[in-house]
Design a protein around this nucleic acid. Structure first.
Lengths: 164, 164
DNA sequence: GACGATTAGATTGTGCGCAATTCAATTGCC
DNA sequence: GGCAATTGAATTGCGCACAATCTAATCGTC
């Protein structure tokens, strides 16, 4: 019986892993003519979101981007350099705190938003889910991610009863 | 309103992506003293499963492993070489079909199964889910993965109504 | 104001994942 | 039997992800 539970658990972890890769595959196709990968698209989404006006909305530091996307500088630094090389973002040192690098959109980066507009609908259709399932799935996964991140902060063996 | 839905869709995709990485992080810690990464652990799970007896259970080809794990040779070849270098698996050409490589467990690889036994329970605890939630989540994700893989086989723009 | 501690990014190294290509073995067709 | 097409692995190239380390800037404390 315990064996049953454990097998089930393995399957759900694998299911998350496999679903993530399958999503990545569909995004890869849908983003190809935008010249973006899925992680790059995520960065662009955050940037688009934070300048709802058109003008020169406020830029975000690498740290803020990392907090929003749960990524560290080891991932973001090279990714942002690629977006910069593609002409989509600018990276400038913050004059108020020279440790920070502020990431902002170029006109081309801002303009890309419109072309990316149809992507979510295609992905949504490809999942075969309805809206309430999406809502529920998001809620469950967000809770799980929080629990997993919390578990990582604990010693290491805190899976059950506290030490007596 | 539609915009709202699209945002939700972006969120659920990100939730899958983030949950997958969070899971990977917890597995990383739990598998550290086994010397395995999560993908390596998945390969070992498949091998352990396919030789339930103790003896010299049947080996699996790289192709069969790839089908079970949804991975291609570009990922599996170097991964299996690392497992081989670690002394956990053997790789031998199939004498019946010299194109195939059969992957089998070494005694050390088989022995590792026991030490890995406690891992699933720790992961399960870390997710904070109960058994029925796990079951439901697995079912939804498996369905989504199938739908996404199916969508990849279609032309590219088949998001809605078929052409009239 | 000087100095140790902290913080933000960048860099390096390792491994996963996939597309595209290559090569050898096998199969199919004539 | 001979040759083209197919199949199974391996390799190459690129990008993501994370740990560990490094550097420079800033902050705290005295």
């Amino acid at each position: 019986m315990e064996d049953q539970l454990l097998r089930l658990d393995n399957q759900v972890c694998f299911a998350v892993h496999a679903a993530s890769r399958a999503l990545d595959g569909v995004y890869r196709r849908e983003l190809r003519d935008l010249g973006l990968t899925y992680p790059q698209y995520l960065v662009m989404l955050v940037l688009w979101e934070h300048r709802p006006g058109g003008a020169d909305g406020r830029a975000l530091s690498v740290k803020e981007l990392g907090e929003a996307l749960r990524l560290d500088s080891g991932t973001l630094s090279p990714l942002l350099k690629r977006l910069e090389a593609a002409g989509l973002v600018r990276r400038d040192r913050d004059r108020r705190d020279e440790r920070s690098v502020l990431v902002g959109l170029t006109p081309q980066g801002a303009a890309l938003r419109e072309r990316a507009g149809r992507v979510p609908a295609r992905i949504f259709a490809a999942t075969g889910l309805d809206e309430s399932e999406v809502r529920h799935l998001r809620q469950v996964l967000t809770r799980v991610t929080g629990a997993l991140d919390g578990a990582l902060l604990e010693p290491a063996a805190a899976t059950g009863v506290p030490a007596r």
